[in-house]
Design a protein around this nucleic acid. Structure first.
Length: 108
DNA sequence: TTGTTGACTCTGA
DNA sequence: CTCAGAGCCAACA
């Protein structure tokens, strides 16, 4: 049902991103390292997501703590993050040392 | 099959 | 801090 099935790598990316807790963010590079993909692939996978997917795509940002620009949609991502309690500074950046998620059980 | 593209990151200046 | 160039690899035509 529901359209084309994404590649195993994409599904691995989606599953990892889905584990990101509410109110926290991760970077493309971080996801890539975790699932064995390059940051570009992660961004590509996010762009391939459907609108009603359960993947918190808005919690994925670049290493600068900023929302990657693309034609309109950054405003919605920023609003979604703010709704979760993520704070932006005057330059529209997020403090990764504070809101960045270290990953699933980093001590394991 | 080849060539182009892209929601990135790294390094050097 | 910012800016520019190179590398990167899967998806798509």
């Amino acid at each position: 049902m529901s359209g084309p099935v994404p590649s195993p790598l994409y599904r691995r990316i989606y599953r990892w991103v889905r584990a990101v807790p509410r109110g926290q963010v991760v970077t493309y590079g971080q996801v890539g390292r975790a699932v064995g993909a390059t940051p570009r692939i992660v961004g590509f996978a996010m762009g391939a997501l459907d609108r009603g997917s359960d993947v918190p795509w808005h919690r994925v940002i670049n290493r600068l703590g900023r929302i990657s620009p693309r034609g309109g949609g950054e405003g919605r991502q920023k609003a979604l993050l703010e709704a979760e309690g993520v704070a932006f500074d005057g330059a529209g950046r997020i403090d990764l040392s504070r809101f960045g998620w270290a990953g699933p059980n980093p001590f394991d």
